[in-house]
């Protein structure tokens, strides 16, 4: 997979907003033909846009309330980013499990929000999954939940496999990296989630 060529749904939607003046059906059809793996999402996006475009009756919104909530969220974000930066400086490296802890999240929350399970999270944390096989969607989900840039996630999950500290054998352990989909196949995820990842990975590879 060539990661530079990976186009996420969000990238496509940004392009659509730049190029399309209005949500007409012909435009939708063209975008669906270009990105058939996103047909369902594109259709829903255009439908929502079209319906909202036509209906002009809007509720009143307290702009100051929204603005205050945005300021509050921004300050929390800055605070947690500062805390995470301090944490990273303290430990001297970036590891996924440390980022989770710095965000005061539980592993369960993270895996549930990202469509992963604990075994996949542990493998990602220890670089036991070949980086090039990891779907961009997985990276994007981790970045969203951990409220950081995708590049930060990439830094955390790419590199040589990391052995467990508790390894007691005299010999050096041989750690094998596996493909993301192989790790998914042997995970405890339900079948439908495994199928989702297969579909996502196939969609990204075809781009």
């Amino acid at each position: 997979m060539n990661r530079k060529d990976t186009v996420t749904l969000d990238d496509i939607l940004d392009e659509i907003m730049l190029q399309e003046q209005e949500p007409n059906h012909q435009a939708l059809t063209n975008w669906c033909k270009r990105y058939p793996e996103h047909t369902e999402e594109l259709t829903r996006f255009f439908a929502t846009w079209a319906v909202q475009d036509v209906q002009t009756e809007r509720p009143e919104i307290d702009e100051e309330l929204v603005a205050s909530r945005m300021v509050s969220h921004a300050l929390n974000l800055l605070h947690s980013q500062s805390a995470a930066e301090i944490q990273v400086q303290t430990v001297g490296d970036t590891r996924l499990h440390k980022m989770v802890r710095a965000r005061e999240l539980s592993d369960d929350t993270l895996v549930s929000e990202c469509g992963l399970d604990r075994s996949l999270l542990a493998k990602l944390d220890r670089h036991l999954i070949l980086f090039t096989s990891i779907p961009q969607a997985c990276i994007d989900r981790l970045a969203r939940v951990l409220e950081c840039a995708a590049e930060t996630i990439i830094t955390a999950i790419r590199g040589e496999p990391i052995p467990l500290n508790s390894y007691k054998s005299k010999g050096k352990p041989t750690l094998r990296q596996e493909e993301f989909l192989d790790a998914v196949a042997t995970s405890d995820l339900p079948d439908n989630s495994k199928q989702d990842w297969k579909r996502i990975a196939a969609g990204e590879t075809s781009n």
Binding site: T48, W49, V51, Q52, Q55, T56, E57, R58, P59, I61, D62, E63, E64, V66, A67, S68, R69, M70, V71
Partner: peptide
Amino acid sequence: RELGRRIARIAKDVAS
């Protein structure tokens, strides 16, 4: 805060 006010106005357009 100013960006928040503007977001509220834009978001209102899809709040029918």
